[in-house]
Structure formats: structure tokens, C-alpha cells
Amino acid sequence: MGPLGDAQLTDLAAAATVAEGGQGTVFRLARPAGTLLKLYHREVAVLAGELARLIDLPARETVATRTAWPSGRVFHRGRCVGLLMPAAPDRFTTTIAGRPRLLELQFLLYPRRAMWAELALPTEDERRGLAAGYLELFRELHHHDVVLGDVSMRNLLWTLSGGPGVFAIDCDGFRVAGRPPAVRPADTAGWADPAGPRELTLDTDRYKLALLTLRILLGNHRVTPEEVRGKPLLRGRLGPALSLLAARAAEPGRRPAAECWLAALS
């Protein structure tokens, strides 16, 4: 979806509530089809200028099929109160316990439980394919100097339908390196950079990328590069090339770029 431009809240008709999150509520619009409105909670600070910058970034074209990149700002009484974005394609949705459910990253990182017993989970090869999908997405964004900032187990989607595929939603926390984000993302617990940087940079992204890759491959929501470095059993499961990258990821400033992980996976 290309940029839709600015819209007035009063001109939009919501067809259904899709999700309620910490930052805002997401609605499906009656038109245009496949468009979502994210309406921020009143207390959320929105940098309207940074949101416009994000919407106009050339990077959007290269990741258009893999992200719900914001497509327009929404104003009410002169204030930016929300954004428009495309809905995730249907293949990133499934049915669990009789309800439609996005195929969120979290399902890959926790043991199977009775409530989602019917969910088809990836094989080891498919996990490598999904990890590679996220790595390629990060690589493209980093190539354009775009920092993702936060990795949330709810904002990264996956599918096995039509082959392993990935999709990122809630991209309003993305920013060009050195710029503030339009909306400050949460610093998801368990995904923070232990070096505790003041600003999120490509290096912090690379740490989160290491967490993402290792956690998908090992099916474990809390494993870290530091833990892999200290546990021969985990290194044995990953093999020498990935283990070496994990060790480097534990050292701020030496963290491997996405292409290093991709080479080790291929």
C-alpha cells in the first residue's frame, strides 16, 4: 500500500475493533478495504513530523510486502491522534480456540499448550526459514539506516502457508538512525540490550536480532547469547558457525549484522 496521506478522524468509518494494546486501539476501516486505523490512547505522545518522515521513507517500498508500514496520519482537532496502516495478509492469521488469531512470534518461543494444540508449528528446517525471513527484513531495513528499536513477540508475525514467511506490524516505533521515533515503543521485557544504551541504535537492533534468531532456532523465549556462550549443550544444537556469532553478539560493538547470520544459516 502506498502512502494515503493525512486523514481527518471524523471522515473515517470504523467497521470493527481489531485489538486493544498498551498504546492504542486498532480498528478495521469500512473503506478502503484492508486498511487499519490505530488510534492512540490520549496520554501517548505522537511526533507528527517524525511519523510523516517515516511514512515517506524510501525503505517502505522494499519491505512493503513484509510490513504494515504506516500509510497515513490521522488528525482530530489539529492533533495527530493516529495512523493508517495495511492489515496483515490473511495467511498470517489462523483460528485458535474458535477465534481468529494472528500468528505471532510468541507461538514459536513457548512450549505447546492445550489451548493451541491444533496450531501447526514449524519443523526445524522451517524455523531456519522463518529466522532467515526476519534476518532478511532486518537486513533491508538496516541497509536503509532504519532502526526497529523494539522487538515484541506480538508484533512479528509468521506463516508456513505458501512457505515460511514473515510480517512486521506496529511499525510506528521504527526510526531512521539518529532520529527519535514517532511514538516511543515499549522496551519489551526480556528483549532489552544488557549494555543498557541511552539510545536505541543499529547495535542494539543487532543484539535483538541475535535474541530473535537464537530464540526461534532453539524454541526458547528467554535464551540469550550470553547463555549460549556458557552452555555447550546449546552450542551443540546450534553448530559452530551460529555459536560463534552468538558469542560475538554478547559483546557490544562486535554484534553480527543480519548478513552474518544469514550466511551461517545457509
Binding site: A97, L109, Y110, R113, W116
Partner: peptide
């Protein structure tokens, strides 16, 4: 129950 039980992070 359906909303909470199908959210692995929350259920955990």
C-alpha cells in the same frame, strides 16, 4: 479465557 489462554506470554 480464550483471549488470555491463547496468548503464550500472558498465559505463562
Amino acid at each position: 479465557h480464550a483471549a488470555v489462554g491463547t496468548d503464550p506470554v500472558v498465559a505463562d
